[in-house]
Structures are given as structure tokens and as C-alpha cells.
Design a protein around this nucleic acid. Structure first.
Length: 264
DNA sequence: ATGGCTGGTAGAACCAGA
């Protein structure tokens, strides 16, 4: 019998400010594993109790005060916490765990990159490109049994943004970012699971700005959150869903969860 | 009108997100 495992990823925009909706999501969707990004909390005050009371007793965190931070929350055993610093500046943007079946699950928060898409005018943009380049070097050694998920902060395809033309110079969809992400993807033959299940010609978003008067009516979204797998795991994925409805919940994150069901 | 908001930390006419 294949083992079914449902893995979710969600940029939560402060885990402490989202207690209500993260509980609701876990009760309603009940993934086996939830990868959180932008937890915005130091490790010593991470709100573990919220998760433990729902049966998520395996909690692997890499946080820092106020900014960034990732956490992998699981109700199945996970092992071998591994943290990589692809920005080489100490920011908490990655944590990996090993599942019982040997699969490595990487939870990553790629830098947003600031406003101006030019590394000379805006050092944060250069850091984002360099982060992707270091990930690509790491990826060259990754051959199999690996999942890479999280907030990539890049919407690579034309139908991953509300207007390809209007976003060409907007950080997250500029050609140079898309090229860097494409090089990363090719380095391990990573399979973009969302686009295995949802036609690349169809609009698909995981993030909508807080500043829209009516996010749902204007629907100016971007697909910034991703679930990638090495080629050997491609056929283990049996479904993939973007939980768009979570954007309309009370006090939402600006990102919504994505969930992949695997049959290992 | 893709910044119109939101969170954290300080104690800001702040910073960051994307």
C-alpha cells in the first residue's frame, strides 16, 4: 500500500498574528506537514503550543526576531534538521528535514528583493539574484528524493501574474529573476507541481497585495509560492491545490497555502 | 492607483514586504 502524505506550504506573515487562521487551516485541511515562511519570531518564543494541541508534535524551526523565519510543522516524524544560508548573511530563510521514507523536504523563503530591479541601485535585488545562484550551485548536487517548497518570490510564467506586460519591470517577474529561477529549475530537473496539475495557460496566483481595495474583485495576483520535486518524485504527486479562499479569511496573510498530496 | 495595507519593534515623520 502506498503511503499518502499531504504537504502544505504557506507564507504566514507572522505566525503569532495568524494563530486563528493557521488553526482553522490545520483543522479543516489537516495536512501531514506544514511548511511556514515569514514566521517573524525568535526561536525561544515560537508558539509551539498552537501546533502541539492539534497533534503536530514535530516542530523544526529556523527563526530570528522580527523578520523572515521558517518552520516545518509535522504530525509524522521528521529528522536531521539542516539549515542552509544561501544569502551568506545569517538570515533565517531555510530549513530542511528528512522524512521516514528518505525524502528530504526543503522549506525556503527566497528574498523579496526590494523595489528597484537593479543590483547597483538596490543591493537587495543583487542579494536575491545571488541567493538564487547559490541555490543553483546546491541544486547541482541534488539528484533525487528531494522536495523544494516555499515562498520563492518569483512568478516565472506569463500566466503566473495578472499582467505579464505590466509586471516585466516589477520585482518578482523581471526577465533576469525568471532566468535565474529557470537556471535553478534546470540544475536538478525540478518539476513545478502546480503546473503539472493546472494548465500553464491558465492564470494561477498564490499572493494578492494587502493594498488592493478589493483583492478578489481586482484579482491582481502573482504565483510566488511553489512546490518543486526532483524528477523521480513527479509521479508520486497525486494532486495539488491552491487554497485561494484563505485570502478571504479574517485577518489573512497576503499569501495562501498550497497543498500537494503524495502517494509514496 | 502595484501601493491604497500589515506586522514587528521601538518608542519613528521607523523598517520591511512584493
Amino acid at each position: 500500500m502506498p503511503q499518502t502524505l499531504r504537504i502544505a506550504s504557506w507564507n504566514i506573515n507572522s505566525v503569532r498574528a495568524r494563530t486563528a487562521i493557521v488553526e482553522r487551516f490545520l483543522r479543516e485541511e489537516a495536512p501531514d506537514i506544514l511548511c511556514l515562511q515569514e514566521t517573524k519570531v525568535a526561536d525561544d518564543i515560537f508558539p509551539e503550543g498552537v501546533f502541539r494541541q492539534l497533534g503536530y508534535n514535530h516542530i523544526v524551526i529556523n527563526g530570528q526576531p522580527a523578520y523572515h523565519g521558517v518552520a516545518t510543522i509535522s504530525r509524522v516524524p521528521v529528522h536531521e534538521r539542516n539549515v542552509r544560508d544561501w544569502q551568506a548573511n545569517g538570515e533565517a530563510r531555510h530549513v530542511a528535514v528528512r522524512l521516514d521514507n528518505g525524502v528530504e523536504l526543503n522549506n525556503v523563503y527566497i528574498p523579496a528583493g526590494g523595489d528597484i530591479p537593479d543590483r547597483d541601485e538596490n543591493p537587495k535585488f543583487g542579494q536575491k539574484l545571488d541567493f538564487l545562484t547559490r541555490m543553483t550551485e546546491w541544486s547541482g548536487d541534488v539528484a533525487e528524493k528531494t522536495i523544494l517548497t516555499g515562498d520563492f518570490n518569483v512568478a516565472p510564467l506569463e500566466q503566473d501574474v495578472w499582467s505579464h506586460k505590466q509586471l516585466l519591470k516589477v520585482v518578482s517577474h523581471t526577465p533576469i529573476e525568471c532566468e535565474h529561477l529557470d537556471r535553478l529549475q534546470k540544475a536538478s530537473g525540478w518539476v513545478d507541481l502546480a503546473r503539472q496539475f493546472i494548465d500553464p495557460e491558465e492564470k494561477l496566483y498564490t499572493w494578492w497585495s494587502y493594498r488592493a481595495r478589493d483583492w478578489e474583485a481586482s484579482d491582481r495576483g502573482r504565483r510566488l509560492d511553489h512546490m518543486w520535486v526532483t524528477p523521480d518524485l513527479k509521479d508520486k504527486a497525486v494532486s495539488h491545490r491552491v487554497h485561494r479562499d484563505c485570502r478571504g479569511w479574517t485577518k489573512p496573510s497576503d499569501h495562501v497555502p498550497i497543498v500537494t498530496e503524495f502517494a509514496f
